[in-house]
């Protein structure tokens, strides 16, 4: 990908993010079923299994204590507008 293309994509993303944060508009609310479907879809992503990511915070902390390791926490979301 050429640097100009990367810059353009960044500009579009930044612009969209800014506009999304600023425009006084109402977002259509999704149903609980839709949020659940999106979560299940996200949870099934290959990288989660590949990296052996835990999804239960209490279990992650307990494992870290037991193994004397750090928790490496990644926060993401399954919903999007």
């Amino acid at each position: 990908m050429r640097p100009n293309s990367i810059g353009l994509i960044f500009a579009l993303i930044a612009g969209a993010a800014w506009a999304g944060a600023q425009q006084p508009k109402q977002r259509p609310e999704k149903s609980p079923e839709e949020f659940t479907r999106l979560f299940e879809e996200k949870s099934a992503k290959p990288w989660i299994r590949k990296g052996a990511w835990l999804t239960d915070f209490d279990e992650a902390c307990a494992q870290a204590k037991k193994q004397g390791k750090l928790v490496f926490a990644y926060f993401t979301r399954s919903y999007a507008y």
């Binding site: 990288w47 990511w53 915070f57 390791k69 993401t76 979301r77 919903y79």
Partner: peptide
């Protein structure tokens, strides 16, 4: 997070992913 090296790195930590869902 899809890099092949992440498997070895994650073995040195406890990897935890939190997904905010907005599920009531």
């Amino acid at each position: 997070l899809s890099d092949d090296g992440i498997v070895a790195f994650n073995a040195t930590v406890v990897p935890f992913v939190h997904i905010t869902t907005r599920i009531p």
